[in-house]
Design a protein around this nucleic acid. Structure first.
Ligand SMILES: [Zn+2]
Ligand SMILES: [Zn+2]
Ligand SMILES: [Zn+2]
Ligand SMILES: [Zn+2]
Lengths: 144, 144
DNA sequence: AAACGTTCTGTTATACCGTAACATTCTTGG
DNA sequence: CCAAGAATGTTACGGTATAACAGAACGTTT
């Protein structure tokens, strides 16, 4: 799926949720799409400043928060970064695999497993919040 | 296991690895033990300053890094914090549930889940390395 | 159109998280 | 003792994120 197509899908996705993909949010999403894998807030901020002349941290953080809440992006806590969700619309929770050798990122749908975990944890009185799992390992290309 | 007993076990654990649990590192570990669940670096720093009169961030970060590397603590990325590992020496691969409200920690046996995750990721050509799984949510007391 | 509440964005300032770089002290083996 | 390495002290800085308030845009009601 190329960027333009993804942006259209994102637009529809937001409309279905009653949310608005404003031009600013769309611009931020576009900037994140321009990167291969994990991108950081201040990288996006720098890009935004290049395009708009001026921008402050809250501007980009608010847009990123919105995109995460909408399910268009995922936050990667361990790396203080964000990645584009490649499963928009399927209401999933991500399993994000980071190759510790080459840095590439791969995302699987972890919804079934998290459902099982949630059931098990619920039995112990613990309510697991919606979230992504980040695991490190080696991608196909890096398994000598 | 109480704190004194844990510290002794930690001492033995470090000796077995050829690492040194110096008095500073031991003091930091003791401070982390003094909390119920997740504790942040700057909280430990404040405690250290209360006990020693003066201390700077690198002092506490180096000690924490050492304790994590030794397997005595785990880092909780999503909360920028640290927790005590309760399975020192058993070469575990645990599932740690962290209450994002009160910081308390709970553990589940995640062996079947991790096997499932490995299988799914393996199908995509990704080899997950041994590691701990951290999930956030709300504990029984905080679901009111 | 005018008034209103809501949502979004701009702006300033600041708090929090973590590390680089170098100086000093402590330990350990020869 | 002396040299080499490990650990700690110290200063300074850079990266991450949010609070708080002001202004603009938008849809709704009158
Ligand atoms: Zn996703
Ligand atoms: Zn790789
Ligand atoms: Zn552990
Ligand atoms: Zn709790």
């Amino acid at each position: 799926m190329d960027a333009a197509c993804f942006l259209n899908a994102a637009d529809r996705h937001c409309q279905q949720q009653g949310a608005k993909l404003t031009s600013l949010r769309r611009q931020v999403l576009e900037l994140v799409l321009g990167y291969d894998g994990v991108v950081k807030a201040y990288q996006v901020l720098a890009d935004l400043q290049r395009q708009r002349g001026i921008a402050a941290p809250p501007t980009v953080y608010r847009a990123l928060d919105f995109l995460v809440a909408s399910g268009l992006l995922h936050k990667v806590d361990a790396l203080n970064g964000y990645i584009v969700c490649r499963h928009v619309g399927c209401n999933h929770e991500g399993l994000i695999l980071v190759c510790s050798q080459c840095g590439r990122v791969q995302e699987l749908d972890a919804t079934p497993m998290l459902a099982l975990l949630r059931e098990q944890a619920g039995g112990e009185g613990f309510a697991i919040a919606p979230q992504n799992l980040l695991l490190t390992g080696h991608c196909q290309g890096c398994q000598a």
